[in-house]
Design a protein around this nucleic acid. Sequence first.
DNA 1: GAGAAACCTGAATCGCACG
DNA 2: GCGTGCGATTCAGGTTTCT
Lengths: 375, 375
Amino acid sequence: MTRVEAREAAIAAPRAAISQLPLGQILDGDCVERLRELPTASVDLVFADPPYNLQLGGDLNRPDGSQVDAVTDDWDKFASFRTYDDFTTAWLRECKRVLKPDGALWVIGSYHNIYRVGAILQDLGFWILNDIVWRKTNPMPNFKGTRFTNAHETLLWCSQGEKAKYHFNYRAMKTLNDELQMRSDWVLPICSGGERLKEGGTKVHPTQKPESLLYRVLLATTERGDVVLDPFFGTGTTGAVATRLGRDWIGCEREAPYRDAARKRIAKELPLDESALATMQSRRDAPRVAFGALVENGLIPPGTQLFDRKRRWTAVVRADGSLAYEKQTGSIHGLGKDLQGAPSCNGWSFWHYDKGGEVVPIDAARQMYLLATED
Amino acid sequence: MTRVEAREAAIAAPRAAISQLPLGQILDGDCVERLRELPTASVDLVFADPPYNLQLGGDLNRPDGSQVDAVTDDWDKFASFRTYDDFTTAWLRECKRVLKPDGALWVIGSYHNIYRVGAILQDLGFWILNDIVWRKTNPMPNFKGTRFTNAHETLLWCSQGEKAKYHFNYRAMKTLNDELQMRSDWVLPICSGGERLKEGGTKVHPTQKPESLLYRVLLATTERGDVVLDPFFGTGTTGAVATRLGRDWIGCEREAPYRDAARKRIAKELPLDESALATMQSRRDAPRVAFGALVENGLIPPGTQLFDRKRRWTAVVRADGSLAYEKQTGSIHGLGKDLQGAPSCNGWSFWHYDKGGEVVPIDAARQMYLLATED
DNA sequence: GAGAAACCTGAATCGCACG
DNA sequence: GCGTGCGATTCAGGTTTCT
């Protein structure tokens, strides 16, 4: 069963395992405490937008809830980095426990905190897959002209470890980016206009993230039915986009006004249609077809001549689906590899045949076979 | 006396203090040991391009079967994060000592190492002023389709501490960026073509940085006569650009072949003219270079055809400095934006023209204009 | 000789199921 | 846990070769 099939089965079947999870709920209180109550290896993705820094305000508390003092001298500065590091270590450690072995973590931050977060998550065993730069189209200018305009934020995307599996919807990202590989720099506007939640004319949350950012994150690294955990839920951008994309979610948020705003907001969200949610699937996830099946089936009968694009070699198809070129024989992949002296070869794109006067890769026959045999 | 005046006085006067410095020399050996021999508080800027600790696995082949020439040098191998952190702490600590109180530090890295470097330099008391993203126009793709294309590197710019002074040529940056504040994301190509040092067809150094990157760093954060220290000198990009811009430099490099290549390279560099360097000073009254000025000047006469790099659109320059493409008209920025359907467009780099058979961005004409019109 | 096409390469943490 | 074998996978820019 491929991962995609497993996920589809999980969607259809009664969810015994995840039924214990508080899906679609915003947990109240300190996120480290709330995370401790969640089962180990139970969520597919964590998206975290933690407090950015100690210097910027009194919204940072120590893990025990006490307030961090304002910092002035060097000793306090060290102490405050230490405090921030302790806090970061605590919530990252719980996230790592709650994540499935093939789950992934996203964290967003700015230069104030992201270097501390990055070093700590590496120390905890997370493996950085990419750092992503969110390049803002409309950043706040530097009014005093003292530095470069701070025009980006950074996201870290990590697996559970160096050897851990993870999920990446390569084809969906490439399709989204006009058939070029999606790069590590994403150009997106900040959250403003109608999307920005306001209460009596003032913004509800100081750092509300744009939905487009979460959209790309969730589309790239989750499947339908996956469970997304956001330990710093705020006004629920993660929950809103997850709902729209047919993903389940769990949030943690200490502040009641944020929770209220998030609940109201998410209540308005409807999942997209079945058809709209379908994404370009990777060829890696497509069912495998043995070349021999095409031979048996008569799509490429024994005796057919196959050749590479430049017609350097012409091989003959044998009854068992193997190829023969002079004294050499092998599978479509193996013979292609040997003839080229290459480290590997995809026979489906390497070998061609004459299909009514037109030269096409044998992959075309595979596609026809797939269309004919799909249920 | 302003800082600039003080520096100019220092240039004119016998340099008692800095005469002890090995200016224009490449020190041989371990950079931490060599840095220990330099006087405290003696250099204005450190630019450091340390080993990235890439931790690469086996061989990597492109889809066409060719092999990627990876960074396998011993100098990039570290036993563990701990070892790398110790190394990083040692060289950063010496750099901090050698830097003047109002000096600044730049470090470049990738996600493999930059989070460790960033956390350590904060722990040492450095104060991050900006993190800068170098967005590569031509990065290496992700050949296996397993992640996002790793299309950027990160630079950290730091002062000696939270309250420390530092130097920033705000006007020069704004002028260079078409009268918009220079942002924290810099779009520059990688080092290739004629700029890339080669010996017998193979590259001399696996990670040579583009001169445009150092040009911007030095222009933004140093003045003429400043001393720039590069503890990982490599093939001397820092020394070459510093020489051109009339800055002094000191390098450290362990590998003899890199030192030799750097000496040869820098020997060819000449400082720019007095007058050319003068334009790079901060000038409150720096005139905006309107595209129209180039038109009336004759550098790009009315009727000239401008096109984007891929020649998807060809527009005509009108007498007032606006562009016309079919029925659409606008400024170089506005029309470029509209045609691409993009949120913004830097017309200076988007539009090209034929300059005696060579296709160059119109920004080249702006540079010529700046040289020609300075006083 | 000019234009087109092929070729080469860059700081890269680059697969996965099955036996 | 590890070896084996199927078979998926690239963008921009500069340089060389071919027509």
